[in-house]
Simulated assay, not measured.
Amino acid sequence: MPTLLIIHHTPSPFMQEMFEAVVAGATDPEIEGVQVVRRAALAVSATDVLEADGYLLGTPANLGYMSGALKHAFDTFYYPCLDSTTGRPYGLYIHGNQGTEGAERSVASVTTGLGWEQAAASVIVSGPPAKTDIERCWELGATVAAQLMA
């Protein structure tokens, strides 16, 4: 059974709302045969990443960069997974009040190095997530999970 790994850093109510929408989309009953695994960025391991077939990444934008927690996750698994996860799909959601472009760019740099393929447009939210932002998060989760269906 294909596995979708959600790697997230969720330190705020806004990030929690986005995370829950991503999970709801990824676990929609119409998506069959995909196991969804959730790992906090500070708890994810190289084994988690190697065992997954696709990824959803969630981070706040901190001072124009991805969160330190997501950066730590990448530092933990980058080299052990470098040649073994090439071509796998991923999606990204970001919340921030400023500097979201830098956060998106920093994640893109690492995922490009890993050879991952962006499977859907990133969801980037500034300020409180609107209903349409939450819907886009749901769609992100559903889109990446659906691509893994056998």
Rank of each mutant, 00 (worst) to 15 (best):
Thr3Lys: 15
His9Tyr: 07
His9Gly: 03
His9Gln: 08
His9Trp: 06
Pro11Thr: 03
Glu17Ala: 14
Glu20Ala: 00
Ala24Asp: 00
Ala24Pro: 00
Gly25Tyr: 04
Gly25Met: 05
Ala26Asn: 08
Pro29Thr: 10
Glu30Ser: 12
Ile31Leu: 08
Glu32Gln: 12
Gly33Phe: 03
Val36Trp: 03
Val37Thr: 11
Arg39Ala: 15
Ala40Glu: 14
Leu42Ala: 09
Leu42Thr: 12
Ala46Asn: 04
Ala46Pro: 09
Thr47Ile: 05
Asp48Met: 11
Val49Cys: 08
Leu50Ile: 13
Glu51Met: 09
Gly54Gln: 13
Tyr55Gly: 00
Leu56Ser: 11
Leu56Ala: 10
Gly58Ser: 01
Gly58Glu: 00
Thr59Met: 12
Asn62Asp: 12
Leu63Gln: 15
Ser67Thr: 05
Ser67Pro: 01
Gly68Cys: 10
Leu70Gly: 08
His72Ser: 15
His72Lys: 14
Ala73Glu: 01
Phe74Arg: 13
Asp75Phe: 01
Tyr78Trp: 13
Tyr78Val: 08
Tyr79Arg: 04
Pro80Met: 14
Cys81Asp: 12
Leu82His: 14
Leu82Trp: 09
Ser84His: 10
Thr85Phe: 05
Gly87Asn: 13
Arg88Cys: 06
Pro89Cys: 08
Tyr90Lys: 11
Ile94Leu: 15
Asn97Gly: 15
Gly99Leu: 11
Glu101Met: 07
Glu101Arg: 12
Glu101His: 12
Ser106Asn: 01
Ala108Gln: 10
Val110Ala: 09
Thr111Ala: 13
Thr111Trp: 08
Glu117Cys: 05
Gln118Met: 14
Ala120Pro: 13
Val123Cys: 12
Pro129Cys: 06
Pro129Trp: 07
Ala130Arg: 14
Thr132Leu: 10
Asp133Ile: 03
Ile134Arg: 14
Ile134Leu: 15
Glu135Trp: 04
Cys137Asp: 02
Cys137Leu: 04
Leu140Asp: 06
Gly141Asp: 01
Ala145Phe: 10
Ala146Cys: 05
Ala146Asp: 07
Ala150Cys: 06
